[in-house]
Design a protein around this nucleic acid. Structure first.
Lengths: 206, 206, 206, 206
DNA sequence: TATGAATGAGACTTCATTCAT
DNA sequence: AATGAATGAAGTCTCATTCAT
C-alpha cells in the first residue's frame, strides 16, 4: 500500500479523532468531513474503519525505529543508559501520545478485531532493552539487586501516561496554558522527575 | 434514587462491559442481554445510557469513603503515612479497577457529556492528602526538598495503571495464570515496588 | 361510568395537553404527571388513551346541551335569532375551544379509531337550526334568497376558528396581552364583527 | 438543497400523510414505505423528520410567490382587487390545502420545534395586502369605515378552512361524490360565496 | 382500588459499507 | 480513480399497556 498524500492526511485526521473521542466514538463520516474527503474513500482506500486504524499504527510505528541504537553507546554507564532511554522513550511516546492512547485503550478490548502485533513487538523490545540495562547495572554493582526489572517500565511509562490522561487537571494545577507550555514541562520537569525516580529506585541504599 | 437489587445488577453488568469494550463499544442491548432484563429497563431505571454510567460511578464512589482517616493516624511518620496511603489507594483502585479504567478513558473525551464531578472531587482529595504528607516530611527533614509533590501521584497511580492496562502482557511474562494470582502479585510485589520507589525518590541522597 | 373527581381532573388535564400538543403529541405519562396520578390509572380508569379522549368529549358535550331553546324565542325576528345564535355558539365554542380544536384535527384523520358520533350529531343540529332561521327569513322577505344556508355556518365558525388558531398572531397585532384581553376582544369585537358580516350577507341589496 | 426527483417524491408523500394523520401520527417508516424508499433515506436527505417538514414547507411556499402582483392591476377598483385577491388566495390555499392544514395545526403546538418563519412571513404579507385594499376603499368612500381590516382575513380564510375541515360532512350534504366535484364547488360556489360575503360586509349600508 | 415495575413494539436516527456511475 | 446515492443493521429511547401485588 503506497502512502499517497491523501492517505496520510486521512490517517492523521483519524488519529486525532480516535484519540479525542475513541475508536467507537468516531464515525467514518466525521473523519471524512474533517479530512475533507468523500465518505466512501475510507472503505475504498483502507478497506474498513478497522483497517484504517491498523494502517495508521503501522505508519506511526515505522516512523519510529531504532533511534535508540544510535544514541545509546556501549561506553555509557548503566545509569546513563537508563537516563538516555527514559529521555528518548518519553519524548517519543509524548510525540505519538495520541496513537499510544488509542492503542492503550483499544488493545484491552475483549471484542477486539484489530491487529496490534507490530505494536506489541515494539513494546516487548522496550522491555527487553530496559531489562538488559538494569541487569548489567546489577552485575557491575551500581544498581540494587532486589529490583524486579520488568516493573521499572510501568513506573516510567505509567507516570507519563497518568500525567497525559489527566492533562486538564495538571494544566490547571501547574498553570500550563497551552500545548507549548506542556511540551516544556514534559521535557524540563516531568522527564527529570522520572529519571530521578528511577535513579533513586535503582541506587538507593536502605 | 434507591438501589434495588436489579439496579445494582444492571450497574455491575454495565461496569464489566464498559470496562471490557468501552462505553461507546457497549450497546444497551448487550447490557440488557447480559443482565437478563428488558432493554427498556435501562431507560426506565436510569433515564439513559449515560445516566447509567453516572449512577454506576456514584455507586462505586460511595463504596469508597474515608477508609483513609481511620487507618492513618497522626502518630505515624510521614513515610509510614505515605506507605499506608499507597497501600490503601492501590488496593482500592485495584478493587474498582474497571470503574477507573472507564473514567480514565471517558474523561479525556472531547465530546464528553457525562458528569464526573464527584469522581474528580475525590481525585483532588487524594492529591491534597499526598501533598500534605510530603510537605510535612519535607519540613521535618525526612524527605528531600526538591520533589514536586504533585508529580508523586502519577508515579503511584501510573505504575499500577500501566500494569493493569497491560495485564495480558504481564500475565504471560510473570506467569500469573488467573485473577487470584494477579491479586496476590499486586499485593505482594506491585504495592511494595511502588512503596519502594516512592520511598527511594523521597529519601534518596544524591 | 361515574365521574369521580379524579376522573374529571384527568380529563381536564388531558384536554389541555391534547389541545396544546395534539393527541399523538401527548403521552399518557405527560398526562399522568400533570394530573399527579399514576400512569396506570389512565388505562385503569378509561381503558385506553383513546377512550380517555372519547370520555372527555362526552363530558364536554353533556356540559353543553340546549341553551339555545331557552334564549331564542319564537317572537324574535329571523335576524335577531341569527344574532342570538351567533352570540351563543361562538361563546360556547370559545369556552370549549380546546375540545373543538382537538376534534377538528382528530376528526379528519384517516387512521381515526375514535368515536365522534355524539359530537357530529350536535354539529348537525347546529346546521339545521341555522338553516331554519335563514329559510324563515327568506320566506318573510327579510333575507336575500340567493344565499346557500349551509355555507353560512362555515363563515360564522370559520372566522372564529381562524382567529383562535392564529391566536399568537392576533395577540401581537391587536395588543392582547393575556387571556382576559382575548376574552374581551372576542365578546366586544369579534362576535359583533361576525354578526355584522352575516347580517350584511343576508340583507345586502345588490 | 437541490430538488432531486426522489426528494420531491418524498416530500409529496410526507405532505399527504402528515395532512391525513398529523405530523406526530405519521412515522418515518410509513413515509418510507409509501414513497418506496429505505427508511434511512429520510435522515440522509433531510436530516430529520422535522427538517423534512420544513423542507416541504419551503418547497410549497416557493411554489407560490407573486401571482398577485401580475393579476391585480392598479386600475382596478378596491372591490375588484378584493375579489381578485379572494379568488387567487382561496384557489392557492385549496391547491395547497394539505400543507395549510398541517401548518395550522403544528404551528399552534406549545412544544413546537419547527421553523415556520418563511410561512409566517407570507401570511403577514397577505394581511398587509388586504389591509391596503380595504383602506384604499375606505378612503375613496366605496367601503364602510367601521370595519376592522385585520378581521376580514379570518372571515375569508376561515370560511374555506371550516369547509375543508368538514369536507366529509359537506360532501354528503351537498352531494359531492369526488375530488373533482369538490373542486368545482369551491370555484363555482364557495369562492363566490366568500366574495359575496366580503362585498356585503364592506359595502352594506345600515 | 390503586400502583410501581415491567414489557414488547415501535419510534427516530446513525452506522459502516456497497453500489452504480 | 473517485464519488454521491443508497442500504440494512443496529443504535438509543419512548410508547401505551399489563402485570403482580
Amino acid at each position: 500500500m503506497k502512502l499517497s498524500e491523501k492517505k496520510i492526511q486521512i490517517m492523521e485526521v483519524a488519529e486525532k479523532l480516535f484519540a479525542e473521542n475513541g475508536f467507537d466514538g468516531t464515525s467514518v463520516r466525521q473523519i471524512a468531513k474533517a479530512a475533507d474527503i468523500n465518505v466512501a474513500m475510507i472503505s475504498y482506500y483502507f478497506g474498513s474503519k478497522e483497517k484504517l486504524l491498523e494502517a495508521m499504527l503501522l505508519f506511526r510505528i515505522s516512523d519510529y525505529m531504532s533511534e535508540l541504537q544510535s544514541t545509546i553507546t556501549p561506553a555509557m554507564t548503566p545509569l546513563e543508559k537508563i537516563n538516555c532511554f527514559i529521555n528518548i522513550v518519553i519524548t517519543r511516546v509524548h510525540r505519538n501520545r495520541r496513537m499510544h492512547k488509542i492503542v492503550n485503550f483499544e488493545y484491552t478490548k475483549d471484542s477486539r478485531t484489530i491487529d496490534f502485533d507490530k505494536y506489541i513487538d515494539q513494546k516487548k523490545e522496550n522491555y527487553k532493552i530496559v531489562e538488559e540495562f538494569i541487569k548489567s547495572g546489577q552485575q557491575d554493582g551500581s544498581f540494587r539487586k532486589d529490583i524486579t526489572p520488568v516493573l521499572v517500565v510501568p513506573t516510567i511509562l505509567g507516570t507519563y501516561l497518568h500525567f497525559y490522561y489527566n492533562k486538564r487537571f495538571f494544566q490547571s494545577v501547574l498553570t500550563l496554558p497551552d500545548e507549548a507550555a506542556i511540551e516544556h514541562y514534559v521535557h524540563d520537569t516531568l522527564i527529570p522527575h522520572i529519571q530521578n525516580t528511577i535513579k533513586a529506585l535503582l541506587t538507593y541504599e536502605k
